[in-house]
């Protein structure tokens, strides 16, 4: 009996200047396999389906339980996390490509640092006075916690940005993830102190106004963040802020 196998087609590019090529791999099937375990198998035996020696595939990964946000890639054309992509739920051949909206490094690895830069530009933190002992933080009621916690679950995987038709070099749109973080920190009793600053920042070029409300972000988000609600709320807050700024100027 022939051994059961899984067919992969992986888009590879040795470096940003090199041509992109597709390589086909045939890997023995095992129960409970995910895309990452297949990439690990290829590293252990880097031979294509037609028997040609190749190199292990470069990709980002770390926790493998969908919490670190590293392994986002296109799997059968869709942006998602490779660790939670179980082989048995995927149509074969499984086509794997790097995310398309970020500068390519090599193979499936891209540079997503723009998100971290965006978080800096909206001051996505609570400005505490210092780490010395100042007693407990402000009281927070469970209802508030239950609103904020989902927003705090963002793993910075950038899937929401990849799938967004407005996130591209022409618009320079900031993307849903950053907008959700603005909502999170504007909600916090101490984080609020930067509320106006954050809202003004998001009225800059590439800000919340660039959203086309295609709602792909909320569909693609592996952590089910309420992204479209955050965009709505922040969209309103930014308008109110700008009108106030204008009237008080």
């Amino acid at each position: 009996m022939a051994e059961r196998t899984v067919i992969f087609e992986i888009k590879r590019q040795a470096n940003p200047d090199a041509p992109a090529v597709w390589e086909r791999f045939e890997i023995p099937w095992r129960h409970g396999m995910n895309v990452i375990s297949a990439l690990m198998d290829i590293a252990g035996n880097p031979v294509t389906a037609d028997g040609r020696q190749t190199t292990p595939i470069t990709y980002d990964s770390n926790c493998l339980e969908e919490i670190c946000g590293s392994c986002a890639m296109l799997i059968n054309g869709k942006a998602r996390m490779a660790c939670s992509a179980l082989i048995d739920n995927l149509e074969q051949p499984i086509r794997i490509e790097p995310l398309t909206k970020f500068p390519l490094v090599r193979d499936l690895q891209v540079d997503r640092s723009v998100l971290f830069e965006n978080l800096k530009r909206v001051k996505a933190w609570v400005p505490i006075d210092g780490t010395y002992d100042l007693g407990p933080g402000p009281r927070v009621y469970p209802q508030q916690q239950e609103t904020n916690y989902p927003l705090s679950n963002c793993i910075s995987c950038t899937c929401c940005m990849e799938v967004c038709p407005q996130f591209n070099v022409e618009t320079g749109f900031v993307g849903a993830a950053t907008i959700a973080q603005v909502k999170l920190f504007n909600n916090h009793p101490t984080g609020k102190v930067f509320k106006e600053e954050r809202l003004r920042a998001l009225a800059g070029d590439g800000g919340v106004q660039e959203c086309g409300y295609a709602q792909n972000c909320v569909e693609a988000c592996p952590k089910q963040l309420p992204l479209t609600t955050a965009i709505s709320d922040i969209g309103r807050d930014v308008v109110v802020q700008k009108v106030q700024d204008w009237l008080r100027s």
Partner: peptide
């Protein structure tokens, strides 16, 4: 307390 002040969304009592 410090983590609480930094905004960690700890679960809360009523």
């Amino acid at each position: 307390d410090l983590l609480d002040r930094m905004g960690v969304p700890f679960n809360r009592t009523p």
